[in-house]
């Protein structure tokens, strides 16, 4: 598991590689927690994410909360079928823009 993040202006990009589960907790939080202000847009690239569990869903909710809750603008891109299925069982497309 590895997480990369970069900030351009007020836009945050996060890339997650491998299994996204509780062990990524610390690293995932660090990718946004120290930003001077909440990002106006977040793009999470899950091209190389193989699997997510319910604690990963929880981490996504934390990021959403940090980025303004209902006002947050978060896109999850390039996710594979397995990951998409997990996101859609929980109907996360109601909270995130899943492409």
């Amino acid at each position: 598991m590895a997480i990369w993040s970069q900030v351009a202006g007020n836009e945050l990009s996060i890339k997650i590689q491998g299994r996204f589960d509780f062990s990524s907790h610390q690293q995932f939080r660090e990718s946004y927690e120290n930003l001077p202000q909440p990002p106006s847009k977040v793009i999470i690239d899950m091209e190389q994410t193989t699997y997510l569990d319910s604690s990963a869903l929880g981490m996504l909710l934390l990021l959403r909360d940090f980025s303004g809750g209902d006002q947050a603008n978060i896109s999850i891109i390039n996710s594979n079928e397995e990951v998409k299925k997990i996101l859609s069982i929980s109907n996360f497309e109601q909270l995130f823009d899943i492409q």
């Binding site: 319910s54 604690s55 869903l57 929880g58 981490m59 909710l61 934390l62 909360d65 069982i89 929980s90």
Partner: peptide
């Protein structure tokens, strides 16, 4: 519940 916790 904390933000990251929920109940399916």
């Amino acid at each position: 519940l904390p933000v990251s916790n929920f109940c399916c």
